[in-house]
Amino acid sequence: MCTTCGCGGEARLEHQPHSHAHPDQGPARPGRRRISLEQSLLAKNDALAALNRQAFLARGILALNLVSSPGSGKTTLLEQTILRLRGRVPVVVIEGDQQTSQDADRIRAAGAPAIQINTGKGCHLDAHMVGHAFESLAPAEGTVLMIENVGNLVCPAAFDLGEAHKVVILSVTEGEDKPLKYPDMFAAADLMLLNKVDLLPHVRFDMERCLGYARRVNPAMEVLRVSAQSGEGLEGWIHWIEAHRPSLQKA
């Protein structure tokens, strides 16, 4: 029995939704009444996310929730990040995809422990899945935990995983209006990585307009321009990661 979430099972990374069915509800009693709840639909997820956050902080772990549409270059960016941090900062990765373990294989090949969560039909990771994946990975103190969410700019916005920051990745091949089309995601992120800037000469992408849209949705969001392919701007991203690692003394 899982002691944190009470799900009654071992880490179930091939996630099945829990039914927690109540087989016998008993006979209905007379006397209808109204119960006031005022409870968020996300209450359960948020409670588990809070436990994850505590566990991360206690071990001085920086957890980043990487969100983007499919094909933004998240996995390539992660590979390059791992290579650049190698020998200095331990990195582990939780990979979320509906199917296949190809991304986790790529991350392991780059030199970081990785665990794949297949969400099946699910369109996002939740705090419960991440909590169990974290237990299985059992990362060392001071590790950077990268959580690569399912490629989707809608659903992952609502689900807190316990991360320190959401990082949204937008590639310049996608068009500059993404922040307005998916405002919830851009509003939830602390950092936007504008990826594939090496392709700027070849695509129609109005950088100033994109930054203007991003500011309109989230004035506080930081922006870094990078190319995982050419390496441009990656030093700034690596510096950002190092600057945001929690100190162990605080824990």
Partner: peptide, 23 residues
């Protein structure tokens, strides 16, 4: 993600049913 939100709703209410004794 509306389906998982609704599953969360059901889970929350099932727990509430135990505390507040409704069936």
């Amino acid at each position: 993600h509306e389906l998982s939100l609704m599953e969360g709703l059901v889970q929350g209410i099932q727990e509430e049913a135990l505390h507040q004794k409704f069936t």
